[in-house]
């Protein structure tokens, strides 16, 4: 008899139904006169709007970018040493230009 979370958020789900697109399913009793049957089971789902349009694409983007960036991590120490060398050269050039 205590208020449930589903019940508590119902007004908000209904007011913002364009965002949440709630889907509800009411199973009706299956015995007795057709016209007198009332509800037996209830299920309600909310379309995960923010997940679909915001969080999922963002995480997919980050994952795909990091997949591509993974290419520079080969494991060879010589490549890493050459990264450091290239970075130092670029820094010296940059300092020279900005003077």
């Amino acid at each position: 008899m205590q208020y449930t979370a589903t019940g508590y958020s119902k007004p908000l789900r209904r007011i913002f139904s364009f965002l949440y697109q709630p889907a509800r399913r009411v199973e009706v009793e299956d015995d007795g006169l057709e016209v007198l049957r009332t509800a037996k089971r209830f299920e309600s789902k909310v379309h995960p709007f923010f997940e679909e349009t915001f969080y999922k694409p963002l995480s997919r983007l980050i994952l795909s970018v990091s997949q591509k960036v993974k290419a520079i991590q080969t494991g060879h120490i010589q490549l890493y040493l050459s990264y450091i060398f290239v970075t130092l050269v670029l820094l010296l050039i940059f300092l020279r230009i900005s003077r």
Binding site: M1, Q2, Y3, G7, Y8, S9, K10, P11, L12, I15
Partner: peptide, 21 residues
């Protein structure tokens, strides 16, 4: 919501929905 009655939950859920607007 503290006392667990349904009327309190009702009032509180409606109040929250309206004040969020």
């Amino acid at each position: 919501l503290d006392t667990g009655t349904t009327f309190g939950g009702m009032g509180s859920s409606r109040e929250m929905a309206l004040s969020s607007l």
